Computed example of a mutant assay.
Amino acid sequence: MARVNLPYGIDNFAKVRESNCYYIDKTGFIKELLDWTFDVNLITRPRRFGKTLTM
């Protein structure tokens, strides 16, 4: 199985690109969330997975 580079501890987008790390753009997900009508939005993910930043 191929190893995936994840940007642990890298907070600079340029460094993420230079290090050939994976980056997940959640812009489309945010738009979908705003388009749907719910009483409560529950996002379950592991710790430090970007839940608060996404909200």
Rank of each mutant, 00 (worst) to 15 (best):
Y8C: 03
K31I: 02
I10T: 10
I24K: 10
K26N: 09
I43V: 15
R17P: 04
E18G: 03
N12F: 01
R45P: 01
M55Y: 12
K51M: 07
K31S: 09
I24G: 03
D39H: 12
G50S: 11
A14V: 05
L33E: 01
P7Q: 01
L6S: 04
Y22R: 10
D35L: 04
T52Y: 01
F38R: 01
T44M: 10
Y22I: 10
N20Q: 13
D39T: 10
T37S: 14
K26L: 13
L34W: 05
Y8G: 01
A2L: 13
Y8W: 15
K15R: 13
R45N: 09
T54F: 01
I24T: 12
N41R: 13
V4H: 09
M1Q: 11
S19F: 07
R47I: 05
F49I: 00
D25S: 10
D35V: 00
G28F: 11
W36N: 09
L42S: 07
V4K: 13
N12S: 11
M55G: 12
E32S: 04
T37H: 14
A2T: 14
G28E: 12
K51V: 00
F13C: 00
T52Q: 01
F13S: 00
P7R: 05
C21T: 00
M55A: 14
E18D: 10
L42W: 09
Y23W: 15
E32Y: 03
R48T: 03
L34R: 15
I30N: 07
D35I: 03
I30R: 15
M1H: 03
N5P: 00
R47L: 02
L42C: 06
P7W: 01
D25L: 00
R47G: 09
K15S: 09
I24L: 14
F49R: 06
E18Y: 03
R17D: 09
P46T: 07
D35F: 08
G28T: 06
K15W: 02
R3C: 04
T27Q: 11
I43E: 05
E32K: 12
E18W: 03
Y22V: 10
P7K: 01
T44G: 13
N41A: 04
T37A: 08
V4N: 08
Y22A: 08
L42T: 10
G28L: 08
N41S: 08
V40Y: 15
F38K: 06
P7E: 06
N20R: 13
D11I: 02
L53Q: 13
T54C: 08
T27E: 12
R17L: 14
L42Y: 12
L33I: 05
D39M: 02
T52P: 04
N12Q: 09
D25Y: 09
I24M: 08
V16Q: 13
W36Y: 09
